[in-house]
Structures are given as C-alpha cells and as structure tokens.
Simulated assay, not measured.
Amino acid sequence: MANVARETARGESGLDIQHGTKHFRAGALLWIPPVRWDPGHGRWHAVGRHRGNGRRYVNMVVRADDLEHFRVKGVYSEALVRSLNGYDHDPAAPRTLQNPWTRERAQDWADARNHFREPVFIEGHPYAHPRISVYNPPPAEIQIDGETLHLAHYGTKGAHYSRMPPPVEWTPEP
C-alpha cells in the first residue's frame, strides 16, 4: 500500500502543483495489487476510497510519481478484498485474495519504491532516462555516455539536465 503524495505535479514541465490527484485526496491510502495487466509506463493499478464518495472502494490507474511512503499492510475488509480481486473474486471465499504475494516479496517491492532516487530528464527528451537516476539532492553535473550534463532545474518530478553549462555570474572588478 502507499499514500497519495501531498503535492503532485501537473501541467507543462510539472509547474502546476496540486494537493492529491483528481480522484484521491492527498494522503489517501491506496492498495496496489499484484499486476494483472500493464497500464503503461509509470502507471499502476490501485484501489482506494474515492475523493467524491469516501465509503466505496474504486479501482483506478494512478501515476507512480503521485504515490509515496510504500509499505506492507494486511487486508481485512471484505469490500477491499473484492476490489483487489476484481473479476477474479470468488464469492464462495469472500475474504481470500487471489494470487497474493508473500510478505517478503511485498516488503522487498515496497523497500525498492522507497529508495530515494530521482528520475533524470535530459533537455530535448520528453521522458525520464530509463537507466539513470540520481540521489536527492542531485549533483550539479553528471556524465552520460562521455557527455557532461549540467543541472538546469530540480523540481517535484525530478532532476532536469541540460547540455548547456549554467550562466556565469558577472562580478564587477573593485
């Protein structure tokens, strides 16, 4: 399970900061079931209580960047089990999860998501570099394929690097 991030980035270059997402409030608990189908790069299937109706569980596809504080927690609600199972739900066993992970596997998965590394965006490319991430805070310069990239912008969506060096500050001579 995870929480919806307090601040989520939207809009061009992630400059529009919002509280929560369209469907879930900031801090809402979302359960992430084992993958049944791939919703796309950087998106996961999740189950949680909707912003508009806090009583019912809904299944949604959410951006992975909008989630934080991953952990393992037991599921005891029959309604939550039904939502996590989806079409595979067996009414004869209403409190049984279909295809559950072991606690160790789930804990390893959650620990990997909590590792504080930021995605790297390179000027001219709309998506994050698939193989490279940097620690938080990001370094001012990185080397990729023999090319030096300079930190241009650091925001909620990650570190943005440019091939252009930062401008040199002019100081008057005494």
Score class of each variant (00 low, 15 high):
Ala5Glu: 00
Glu7Tyr: 02
Ala9Arg: 01
Arg10Pro: 14
Arg10Asp: 08
Gly11Tyr: 03
Ser13Cys: 07
Asp16Phe: 04
Gln18Val: 10
His19Ser: 14
Gly20Arg: 01
Gly20Met: 00
Gly20Asn: 02
Thr21Met: 03
Phe24Cys: 10
Phe24Lys: 02
Ala26Tyr: 01
Gly27Ser: 10
Leu30Val: 07
Ile32Gly: 06
Ile32Val: 12
Ile32Ala: 01
Pro33Met: 03
Pro33Gly: 14
Pro34Lys: 00
Pro34Asp: 03
Val35Gly: 06
Val35Tyr: 02
Val35Phe: 03
Arg36Asp: 15
Arg36Ile: 08
Trp37Asp: 00
Trp37Lys: 06
Asp38Ile: 07
Pro39Met: 00
Pro39Tyr: 01
Gly40Trp: 15
Arg43Glu: 10
Arg43Asp: 05
Trp44Val: 12
Trp44Met: 13
His45Gln: 12
Ala46Leu: 03
Val47Thr: 04
Arg49Gly: 11
His50Glu: 02
Gly52Met: 08
Asn53Ser: 02
Gly54Trp: 07
Arg55Gln: 14
Met60Phe: 13
Ala64Tyr: 11
Ala64Arg: 07
Asp65Met: 13
Asp65Pro: 14
Asp66Ser: 09
Leu67Cys: 04
Glu68Leu: 06
His69Arg: 11
Phe70Met: 09
Phe70His: 05
Val72Glu: 15
Lys73Gly: 13
Lys73Val: 11
Lys73Phe: 07
Val75Pro: 00
Val75His: 01
Tyr76Ile: 06
Ala79Met: 08
Val81Ile: 13
Val81Gln: 07
Asn85Trp: 08
Asn85Val: 08
Tyr87Thr: 08
Tyr87Ile: 11
His89Cys: 04
Asp90Asn: 09
Asp90Ser: 03
Pro91Ala: 10
Ala92Glu: 14
Pro94Ala: 02
Arg95Asn: 07
Leu97Val: 01
Leu97Trp: 03
Asn99Trp: 09
Asn99Lys: 11
Pro100His: 10
Trp101Asn: 13
Thr102Ile: 03
Arg103Met: 06
Arg103Val: 06
Arg105Lys: 07
Ala106Trp: 04
Ala106Asp: 00
Ala106Pro: 04
Gln107Glu: 05
Gln107His: 10
Asp108Met: 01
Asp108His: 10
Trp109Arg: 15
Trp109Ser: 07
Trp109Asn: 05
Ala110Phe: 01
Ala112Cys: 11
Arg113Gly: 12
His115Thr: 05
Phe116Asp: 12
Phe116Cys: 07
Arg117Ser: 13
Arg117Val: 13
Glu118Phe: 10
Phe121Pro: 06
Phe121Gly: 09
Gly124Ala: 08
Tyr127Arg: 05
Tyr127Ser: 11
Ala128Ile: 03
Ala128Lys: 02
Ala128Leu: 05
Arg131Asp: 12
Arg131Gln: 05
Ser133Tyr: 11
Ser133Ile: 15
Ser133Phe: 14
Ser133Gly: 10
Val134Leu: 04
Val134Gln: 01
Tyr135Trp: 08
Tyr135Ser: 08
Asn136Ile: 06
Pro138Gln: 05
Pro139Trp: 00
Pro139Ser: 00
Pro139Asp: 01
Ala140Gly: 08
Ala140Val: 05
Glu141Arg: 02
Ile144Ser: 07
Glu147Asn: 08
Thr148Ala: 11
Leu149Lys: 06
His150Tyr: 09
Leu151Thr: 14
Ala152Thr: 09
Tyr154Gly: 15
Tyr154Ser: 15
Gly155Asp: 07
Thr156Asp: 13
Lys157Tyr: 04
Ala159Thr: 03
Tyr161Val: 06
Arg163Trp: 08
Met164Asp: 06
Met164Cys: 04
Pro165Glu: 01
Pro165Met: 07
Pro166Val: 11
Val168Trp: 13
Thr171Trp: 10
Glu173Pro: 09
